[in-house]
């Protein structure tokens, strides 16, 4: 109940006053990152924007740090309507929407501009339709930065990767990519990553520089090689039934606010990415940049991964996105 007193209780027909004192619609927005990250900042930007645009008709409660469950469980909870909105890595969502495995193909996007052009354009529209079949409404993408490999040595060529054991997420596409590069992927839980590197259970790992800095991996790793082999992308997904239960004008405002938050968050992440790299160098971690030829050789080595995952992703989808990327790249 609101702050209603005796008068508002007696005034049963007072529809106007009723709407005014109505509780706002609450959107619970869950994500897995710490409060100090641009990812969290992105969720805050959405909260501020939508609360402003809707003039208080919508209230957003943010739950950082996996407070409402692991990544997998959070996505499941959005699907079930237990949580209204979540910001989740595409790599996890593809366990629910296999077509989106596409996004984690190695060296898929030639540049960050093409990446966003595809996700904000034709590619994103196709993803949205697959998401909808699984009970989600896709609300665009935020950035986690490009992924890099780290180890005790530079990893410039497939020869460098050969015999190097690298901690892998349990996702099959990540494991295949590492195998294609010649490394020995070792599946280890994220919670045991630091210890495993510290104790030498594995030689290296792959993650965006953000994770490297936040987990203090400089204490246990010497070199980050800027392989830029894929991107950590976060997708905002909303429960479909909840979205459809919103009045049309609020639906519009949700989209508008999230579009704003997505754009701003990407800029924040770009700025942060530069500071991560300088921070790495200050902490004494060697940062190795690759030449165009070295990148091309690594890309060639990972081409078999595309064939391996054609069936999972679907040949038509894969071809149309690859064509779209080529068109945008030549522009």
């Amino acid at each position: 109940g609101g702050g209603g007193s005796e008068t508002s209780q007696g005034d049963a027909g007072g529809a106007e006053e009723g709407t005014e004192s109505n509780e706002p619609i609450v959107i619970r927005y869950a994500h897995n990152q710490h409060e100090s990250t641009p990812q969290h900042e992105g969720t805050v930007l959405f909260k501020e924007k939508i609360e402003e645009l809707s003039e208080g008709r919508i209230e957003v409660q943010i739950y950082p740090n996996n407070q409402l469950g692991s990544l997998r469980e959070t996505i499941e909870s959005v699907q079930a309507g237990q949580i209204e909105l979540a910001q989740q890595p595409i790599g996890m969502i593809s366990n629910f929407v296999p077509e989106m495995t596409l996004n984690d193909l190695p060296y898929l996007f030639p540049s960050e501009e093409v990446l966003w052009a595809v996700l904000d354009g034709e590619g994103g529209e196709m993803y949205d339709s697959y998401l909808e079949n699984q009970g989600f409404v896709g609300l665009g993408y935020m950035s986690g930065g490009p992924k890099q490999f780290s180890a005790h040595k530079p990893l410039r060529t497939t020869d460098d990767f050969a015999g190097t054991s690298i901690r892998a997420m349990e996702a099959p596409i990540v494991i295949s990519t590492m195998e294609a590069l010649g490394a020995n992927p070792v599946p280890i839980a994220f919670s045991e990553l630091y210890n495993s590197l510290q104790q030498g259970v594995v030689d290296g790992q792959e993650n965006p520089n953000q994770s490297f800095v936040m987990l203090n991996l400089h204490e246990v790793q010497d070199v980050v090689t800027m392989t830029n082999h894929s991107w950590m992308i976060y997708n905002n997904i909303m429960n479909k039934d909840f979205y459809e239960s919103l009045p049309a004008d609020l639906q519009e405002l949700v989209r508008e606010a999230m579009e704003y938050a997505n754009d701003e968050q990407r800029l924040l992440m770009q700025a942060e990415e530069e500071s991560y790299i300088s921070e790495l160098e200050e902490l004494g971690t060697e940062v190795v940049q690759l030449t165009d030829e070295e990148v091309e050789a690594l890309r060639q080595a990972t081409l078999p991964v595309y064939d391996e995952f054609t069936d999972v992703i679907g040949e038509d989808l894969m071809q149309s996105i690859l064509d779209e990327i080529e068109r945008l790249d030549n522009k």
């Binding site: 469950g69 692991s70 469980e73 499941e76 909870s77 079930a80 237990q82 839980a189 919670s191 045991e192």
Partner: peptide, 14 residues
Amino acid sequence: IIAQRLFGGLDQFG
């Protein structure tokens, strides 16, 4: 959600 948490609370390798 309670059933999901009963499962999820245990679903941790550590």
